[in-house]
Design a protein around this nucleic acid. Structure first.
Lengths: 361, 361
DNA sequence: TTGAAAGCGCTAACAG
DNA sequence: CTGTTAGCGCTTTCAA
């Protein structure tokens, strides 16, 4: 998208006008709306011509274009995108649904989406669904009502599936949380292998009593990571104690702290903990400390995601890094591709993760 | 907004239709769009009547209404909001501009805005400006182009002012970061008094060598808190050492850590630090630890905001709490008020802060 | 209680 | 290169 386009947010018709004439026909307080007709009249051309210069068409004589531009400038005209959108049958809005935007994990993903969207002349609407299928549905409904052109959904697969029968025809892609078999384009990482890598690291440090602090079952990634954890342990000839597997319904710091403390209260407590998210892991470290355990000396901790805070805590968190920004960018590009060609076959894509070894394990 | 409204996102015309007839006229892959005309025809009424039932008008005979509803249901019709928006000349979209949505401080504010917006049939578009006046301008431009009806801006006052001449006529309100004299409706807290309260607390703990870690001058709140800090000290008969006042261009953990370390490298280092944001304060604690200082024994730390993480770190952070959720809700209500009545006089409002004493000071 | 008809402001054939 | 014109799909007078 290199040439100036009508959808480029930076292509501001008359935006630099500070002249008082911008409000030439203003009645007290309210500035009267100027339409394309006014501009046409002022420039002595037809609305079609104005529309052409607005949209950067080349078939306008330079001199005419200047005249139109001047009229736009002095009148302070702004395109009415409501009208444009109706006419072109697109809203140029993309939805991004997250279960909880207080979770720092989403920040960079969302930035990635936003940046690609803007590059292509779209705006991104961030929607907090609270992982509630009802809320989620109401956002998908925006697609049907043409308030948005497409969506990227990071909600739990469970919530997605609750709607899936009716959702197949809608233009959206799943991000981070997806069911490869469901036929919706997706982008994410290989959660199974990533969890395995985390366990392998702990194993290589000599741990055998390794606990898993997982989130609830609504998330597919949770199941994938759990299988990765179990298989890695089995492959090492270790039969994991089921008491060491915890399932939490929250990713809050508190939840992690609580889980860690209750793990330590067991008879033969684990010497290492793999938490499926950094927020959880940070809580775990706090919980450990509160019951007098040192990290990593008494208990090693590995997290997941590599949020920016992970490097800041004490001790710095060893974790599996997800390429958040790329995840978002890729998802956005997939969606755009689907929008450009509704029948395009957009495949699922898996991006690489990597283990970041810091102080906690 | 108690009666079903055309703008209630939960008022989903025909949303519960799962019948295959929803795609009755579908060609392979693409489902043909159904318009209000189709519904009218199918129900044997005029489009005007369909429109009336869509909008919950009472002047439709019950039997007719049923017929229309049935037609909507079986056809799987969805209102085209692009058309509706053009006709009613509103987009039902509100913008929220934040300088950096990775900053957890904004999470609850944004939730507050979102919740009030949704209650009133608006959607909220979250915009990350990066505190860049250019980006900010492009979002304000959306108002002029009618893509959004109003905006709430949390950007630095400096960025707002860069645009202020042209922005007076636009429907927006400033939140948290505002210049009361500029004539734009605002909501925030009394930063001057809040900073004073933080200092008073440190004073009451016996500290006299109190440092200030502040953000850059672009933020008005920074100046207000700095004055609060200075005056509180002066009133206690203390002349603060200028070397103890630091100005950072970032609110990152890293920045706080670095500032703390360099403070401690001074000849007569302070025994207490007041950081103007919790993220900074968390970094400060880490920085202190990295140079071998204990908190609060060697150095006391007070933060600002009371983000959820504040209670989780070690030691738990003493801080000034802002009523984030209420700030957002109030800002949204102010904006809505202004939208409902363009000439309404919407005053600025200050919400109460409070000191939360935890372990760090 | 209902319908006919006039646009909302714009884009895109189509014709010149 | 430019203008005329027909809508996009909806809401809303105005009349009946």
């Amino acid at each position: 998208m290199s040439r100036p386009s009508p959808h480029d947010p930076h292509h501001l018709a008359g935006a630099s006008s500070n002249s008082p004439s911008s409000r030439s026909r203003a009645s007290p307080g309210v500035s009267k709306d100027i339409s394309i007709d006014d501009v046409a009249e002022q420039a002595g051309v037809s609305v079609a011509t104005v529309s052409r210069v607005l949209n950067g068409h080349s078939n306008v004589r330079a001199e005419t274009r200047e005249r139109v531009l001047a009229a736009i400038e002095t009148s302070g005209y702004r395109v009415n995108e409501l009208a444009r959108n109706l006419r072109t049958a697109e809203s140029r809005l993309l939805l991004t649904m997250v279960p909880n935007f207080g979770n720092p994990f989403y920040a960079d993903i969302v930035r990635g989406i936003d940046s690609v969207a803007r590059q292509h002349g779209y705006f991104m609407l961030l929607c907090d669904t609270g992982a509630d299928p009802g809320r989620e549905r109401s956002y998908f409904e925006m697609l049907r009502r043409r308030r948005a052109d497409g969506a990227i959904c990071l909600d739990p697969a469970a919530a997605q599936q609750a709607l899936s029968e009716e959702l197949h025809t809608l233009p959206w892609v799943a991000c981070c949380e997806f069911d490869a078999d469901v036929g919706v384009p997706y982008v994410g990482i290989d959660n199974y292998r990533a969890a395995g890598d985390a366990v392998l690291h702990l194993l290589s440090r000599g741990h055998t009593r390794i606990a898993l602090i997982n989130s609830g079952d609504g998330y597919l990634y949770a199941q994938q990571r759990e299988r990765g954890y179990q298989d890695a342990l089995h492959n090492a000839g270790i039969a994991p104690d089921p008491r060491w597997r915890m399932h939490l319904d929250s990713l809050d710091y508190e939840a992690g702290a609580f889980a860690a403390a209750s793990l330590m209260a067991q008879a033969d407590p684990p010497t290492a903990i793999f938490a499926v998210s950094d927020t959880l892991a940070i809580g775990v470290i706090k919980g450990l400390r509160s019951v007098g355990k040192r990290v990593p000396d008494d208990v090693a901790v590995v997290g997941f995601d590599d949020i920016s805070l992970a490097a800041q805590i004490d001790p710095p968190l060893t974790t599996i890094a997800q390429p958040m920004r790329e995840l978002g960018e890729t998802a956005a590009r997939q969606l755009l591709k689907r929008l450009a060609n509704r029948s395009a076959n957009v495949p699922g894509v898996l991006l690489p993760h990597r283990l970041i070894v810091r102080g906690s394990a």
